[in-house]
Design a protein around this nucleic acid. Structure first.
Lengths: 298, 298
DNA sequence: CACCACCATGCGCCAGTGGCATGGCAGAAT
DNA sequence: ATTCTGCCATGCCACTGGCGCATGGTGGTG
């Protein structure tokens, strides 16, 4: 019952002649004759009546023909599906990413991926690194864009980490700020500035710094959203820390200064997949898109 | 993509281990390992991730698994169906028969067949020999019970004829008839009797005799149905010709005399199938049932 | 640190499969 | 009637594919 034999069987059934089937299959007549004989022996049923001018399906032959075509069709479907998966003309890609990455990096990579492989179904889930990694392990996501602080390294044994970029911390200041012309600043230079924070504790997290422990930013205003935060900065109400990843384009009324790396912990950004598990073509491809997207950010 | 390989693939997917799959398949580990490798080479996709404690399906592996199971199931179904056809636990049998045979012979054979093979779908069509043979050729019937007069032999080149019985012609006479005690009579002994006929011409057909051409039965009463005909005979209105096949049991108020074979053409009864076409198991079996049924008639 | 479970692979052997030939058979053509 | 032609079956041989028996490599485990 090998597919090969079934294919021969189908060809003979279609042509009504062993010889003709052999011609189209590029076989000799004897080979096809044998295949049919073997199939009849295997099934224990005569599949063809031998007529003077060819062969004709028996009852049993007709019975088998339906099954044979179904099997061959299904095998073709399997081959097609696998090829599609390989060539990214089908399938899906489930991405997870931490919030800042969803601002620009991941959407750009997804857009590039979608335009190249429009037939792959995309899904994106925003979440925090631990949750994303859980999703990965549970099989609910194919790849996760996560960030890791140096003192909280990711579990390299359970995940394959593809390093994308080191997160750079920017300081947003009004165009009129005294430091607006600088490229890089140190935190202590901002000791007298008011900070506009997303939350009092979140800002502490961003500033897990090597500064003297007694440095406490003065926080006057708390604004949850980036747009509001930057609006306050533009209005001259203070300065704000902004992850570079969150910035899609420099607003015209602000200056974005690079914070000296010694002042902020360097959070590294990775694309994570489950360790030891081969990356499906879609994931593999998406990683290159992510690399290209990070190149555009640098 | 041989079923064999797919079976191995399925087993490995189920067990999660090449070694365990090999054990249940009664193969060595190496053989299974190779099979998987070959399948991966053929599909061009990794199907399993090699983990430290076994293997796990990849995306492509899961894709293939569905198809593999479908293919294997369908192959099993094909084997089952063919076996059922062979063992007569499925399939159908389409019988055609000429009217007289439908009286007793064919129904008895069908009844015996059905009780032995209740899962075979039976159908019976009554018709005249030429029409039945056309049905055979057209593929609308599997076997036809037909009759042939000696001067109208059946086409033995186009049909395989399985001789069942020679039709015997009986003469029904009242119990009080002067010949009622005889076993065999000659037609000329009935020259003075009134004949009760189905139709004036039909009776001529039954009597395609070797008698002198001037013998003309006297026909007083025409009755279409056998029951009416025999009723008339029982009432003493005359005698009637009855094919033995049409008689299920001797009516108590009649005597049935065998007509001397020289006086009536011997019509032979055959089970016909298309020449050169193998008889499906159901047909083959039905022929033996017909043989048994004819044995009961003799 | 030794052990164990698991997978990969080189080697030899055998069955299965295809090609080449021939033979048999029945219808078609001369 | 005879030859010719098209078709299927089968003996023979070479080759490939697949299996078992080994061994080697690797990562978790007691």
């Amino acid at each position: 019952m090998q597919p090969h034999a079934l294919q021969v069987f189908r060809a003979v059934a279609e042509h009504g002649t062993i010889t003709a089937a052999a011609r189209t299959l590029r076989y000799t007549q004897s080979a096809v004759s044998r295949q049919i004989a073997a199939l009849e022996a295997e099934t224990g049923s005569p599949l063809f009546d031998r007529l003077p001018r060819g062969v004709a399906l028996t009852e049993q032959g007709r019975c088998l023909l339906g099954h044979a075509e179904a099997v061959l069709d299904r095998l073709d479907a399997a081959r097609r599906d696998l090829a599609a998966l390989r060539d990214l003309t089908a399938g899906r890609l489930r991405v997870g990413a931490f919030p800042t990455a969803v601002a620009a990096l991941v959407p750009r990579a997804l857009a590039a991926f979608r335009s190249a492989h429009p037939q792959v179904a995309l899904s994106l889930v925003e979440g925090l690194t631990p949750g994303l990694l859980d999703r990965l392990l549970a099989g609910d996501a194919d790849v996760a864009v996560v960030s890791a602080a140096p003192d909280q390294p990711l579990d390299g044994d359970r995940f394959d980490l593809h390093h994308l970029v080191d997160e750079v911390l920017l300081v947003a200041v009004p165009r009129t700020h005294r430091l607006a012309h600088r490229r890089t600043v140190r935190l202590r230079e901002l000791a007298d500035d008011a900070f506009i924070a997303g939350s009092a504790t979140a800002e502490e997290t961003l500033l897990r710094a090597t500064l003297p422990a007694d440095f406490r930013p003065r926080i006057d205003i708390v604004a949850a959203e980036w747009t509001g935060k930057l609006g306050c900065v533009a209005a001259g109400l203070g300065v704000a820390l902004v992850p570079a990843l969150a910035v899609r384009a420099t607003p015209p009324d602000l200056a974005l200064l690079r914070l000296h790396p010694d002042d902020a912990s360097v959070r590294r950004v990775f694309a994570a997949t489950v360790a030891g598990r081969s990356r499906p073509p879609a994931v593999q491809r998406f990683l290159t898109r992510l690399d290209e997207a990070t190149a555009g950010l640098r």
